[in-house]
Design a protein around this nucleic acid. Structure first.
Lengths: 204, 204
DNA sequence: CTCCATCTGTACCACTTCGAATCAAATTCC
DNA sequence: GGAATTTGATTCGAAGTGGTACAGATGGAG
């Protein structure tokens, strides 16, 4: 238990405030989300926001990093069980499709794909987070695919790195489609199709 | 030859102005691109822009529609020749990878994926254009894949619609990666990998 | 109780935004 | 040549932007 800090205690939880700020960014993107929007979303007024997270850009980067971390955790969890590759991949795509479709203002897809991609060209910091996240997702897929190859679920000659990038790419495509108004069935079908292509159509 | 209109002739070409405006949107996205930026990019001052295209939103929609039309034309051209499916798909992915990598301020990917995806949740008009574009790309892939099935380049039991959505998804993923700073080799490899998955690894 | 560190809230600042109004310039029709 | 008509440049204004200063609130330390 860390000792209570000296002065007046804050009346909010920075973690939930960051979640609420992220939700605001998630809907309208970085540039179109004003500090007033963030203030309304979090319930904090602007000076408090500034004190808690720094400026708008820093707040956004922290939201991006949070998503990146969450993605890593859930991918690691989904890929941990030593079941069949097809089962593992299906689990990931099903879960992702469900996540991408939620949001009270309509499906919002992936936070990174939906908002950071636009900023990435002009902003090296955003670009770095996005690139790191993609590399980590690639690595998660590739590691799981390699394990399947070792176990014999996939031919030894398979191109694990290439399959992994395709797997990530379809994930990105699902995120695009979610924001474009695609329905859950389409997203799930995309996942099922790429699983078929990677594991083989018939493959059990 | 249409007769010259009545008053003072305009000193610019609306088509090239739209291209220049699109280039500005392409780099920084819709929300972060101001009318001053557009004015600087096109060489037109604000009232002229307003007169030529309407407000900022209308200008953006026109840019989106232009990209959508261009994509349709180039996909139709790339899929027209009656060569092997693998050749046709490779042609599309190679050309797309090259397009996604150009841009003087770094790779900019696909205009629709790079900018419209962010706006699509809040703006039904943008969402409609994006959804229409995706559906058309799907249809182009699916039609070409069906032809390959008829010719016997692909098993008759193949899931053409599913493969097409995966093909589109990888295209979207390449666009994401381009903006994230990915290099041309990675984009090309992604295309080659999905072509292998669709056409079969060995298939010539 | 007094001092002080920290947080909250109001108000404010300089700046940019989009869009409109105004006026000057250029071209065709009569 | 003169009127009509369209384009172009300058300017303006109301609203919104990100960010900050300062006073008041809140609780621990001594």
């Amino acid at each position: 238990m860390e000792p209570r800090p000296r002065g007046r205690p804050r009346t909010y939880d920075p973690a939930v405030a960051l979640d609420q700020a992220r939700a605001a960014f998630w809907n309208t993107g970085y540039a179109a989300t004003s500090l007033d929007d963030l203030s309304a979303a979090t319930g904090l007024n602007r000076p408090s926001l500034y004190g808690a997270f720094g400026d708008k850009k820093a707040m956004y980067i922290q939201a991006l990093e949070k998503s990146r971390a969450e993605i890593n955790v859930s991918l690691a969890a989904a890929f941990a069980p030593e079941d069949h590759l097809r089962t593992a991949l299906t689990r990931v795509y099903e879960a992702t499709a469900a996540i991408y479709m939620r949001g009270e203002a309509g499906p919002r897809g992936c936070f990174l794909v939906g908002t950071a991609v636009t900023e990435a060209v002009d902003d090296p910091d955003v670009r770095a987070v996005l690139a790191a996240a993609l590399a980590e997702i690639d690595a998660a897929f590739e590691g799981r695919i390699r394990r399947a190859m070792e176990v014999g679920n996939l031919p030894g000659s398979s191109d694990a790195a290439g399959m992994a990038r395709v797997a990530t790419g379809v994930l990105n495509g699902m995120a695009v489609r979610a924001r474009a108004g695609g329905d859950l069935a389409t997203l799930r079908a995309m996942g099922a199709s790429v699983v078929d292509l990677i594991c083989g159509r018939a493959g059990r």
